[in-house]
């Protein structure tokens, strides 16, 4: 109860001071265009799981419950490598609050199998995804140097090659939600976002230029 009263107290007394700030602040310098590059961990497609877990060259599912598979599997070990997710984006700021971004993200991964006997590479499978996406962004705090925002995006992920080695590209629905993002800087700015989706699950760091 005491905490609620305290929060209300702080809120009531802070509103007039914000209002005072607003009166003194010069007009907001809205830059319409933004270009940015970013890297994110953990990659979204990897996080939600493409199934790397099979014995190379043995696609027949019953093989897994065979004695031969138990011994073959023990002869090798595997390493999974990913590129994390890298994104190029262009953002158009309609107003200081609302903007729309078009982006392309890339995520790649390799599952490499090595012989336990001599560490030689036995086999490899790989996945590569390109994801064009449209993102709506809402800036809920705009200052000269700092912006806080949230965003939601939707797009299509195109798998250039996946674990099944299908010849044709496949497409998957791609969604990304960013509850909190912060950008710091004027023309040249850095940003950090926390989000979840098929682009990334976790954090995204980037560098951008607005004009």
């Amino acid at each position: 109860m005491r905490r609620i009263v305290l929060i209300l107290f702080v809120f009531l007394f802070s509103v007039p001071s914000f209002a005072k700030d607003r009166e003194e602040r010069p007009p907001y310098d809205l830059k319409r265009h933004e270009f940015a590059v970013s890297g994110a961990v953990y990659p979204g497609r990897y996080a939600f799981g493409y199934d790397f877990d099979f014995i190379p060259g043995k696609m027949y599912s019953h093989y897994y419950s065979s004695v031969a598979a138990r011994y073959r599997d023990a002869e090798i070990y595997n390493k999974e490598r990913v590129t994390n997710t890298w994104t190029l984006s262009y953002t158009y700021n309609f107003t200081r609050v609302f903007s729309l971004a078009a982006s392309v993200s890339y995520e790649g991964a390799w599952n490499e199998y090595y012989s336990r006997k001599d560490d030689s590479k036995v086999s490899m499978t790989e996945c590569h995804y390109l994801t064009p996406m449209l993102t709506a962004r809402f800036s809920w705090l705009n200052r000269k140097l700092v912006r806080l925002y949230s965003s939601v995006g939707a797009g299509l992920a195109v798998s250039l090659m996946d674990v099944s080695y299908r010849e044709y590209p496949e497409t998957y629905l791609s969604l990304q939600v960013t509850p909190v993002g912060i950008s710091v800087g004027k023309k040249l700015f850095g940003f950090f976002e926390l989000g979840v989706g098929t682009i990334y699950v976790g954090g995204c760091f980037g560098l951008g230029y607005r004009f």
């Binding site: 590059v37 336990r116 560098l207």
Partner: peptide, 27 residues
């Protein structure tokens, strides 16, 4: 700021090198 962001992005690039390995698991 530029240096910090570039350093962080380099970290992101390296963090994805090996996500999983069962090399040391006993079979």
């Amino acid at each position: 700021l530029l240096y910090i962001i570039l350093a962080v992005l380099s970290g992101v690039a390296f963090s994805g090198c090996v996500m999983y390995s069962d090399k040391d698991e006993a079979e």
